[in-house]
């Protein structure tokens, strides 16, 4: 991964409190796993920025190296890597996701 890509990713995860690297856009997800995370965040009323990796091959590869995580989607909250689809789903089901978001100062719909 080149420094420019790394720098761009760093900027993306620091500019918005909640960032989802995904395939497609929040309105038109191009993959079921990305869609599942969008659905959870929307259900919680969480405002997030979607980064479409399909429209940017350098980020698509770069984010995997950046996070040391080989799959998409990837959720970041306040610059911290939370996990992929399975982890987000498990954390949502146990209530832990809501807790983490609130602890980090991200408003969640009750």
């Amino acid at each position: 991964m080149d420094t420019a890509t790394q720098e761009r990713i760093r900027q993306q995860i620091s500019e918005s409190p909640v960032v989802l690297f995904m395939k497609g856009t929040p309105v038109f997800p191009q993959c079921g796993f990305s869609a599942a995370v969008v659905q959870i965040l929307s259900h919680l009323g969480v405002k997030f920025k979607g980064v479409d990796v399909l429209s940017d091959p350098s980020v698509r590869q770069g984010i995997k190296e950046f996070s040391n995580w080989p799959t998409i989607p990837q959720l970041y909250v306040k610059g911290e890597f939370i996990g992929g689809c399975d982890i987000v789903r498990e954390m949502f089901e146990s209530g832990e996701l809501q807790q983490v978001l609130e602890e980090k100062g991200v408003p969640v719909r009750a």
């Binding site: 796993f33 995580w69 080989p70 799959t71 890597f81 939370i82 996990g83 992929g84 498990e90």
Partner: peptide, 22 residues
Amino acid sequence: RVARQRLVYAALAEELAGGIHA
């Protein structure tokens, strides 16, 4: 959770780089 899945991903790195899509 993240550490656990990283271990599994590392064990299957070859397969993930090759044919496995999800």
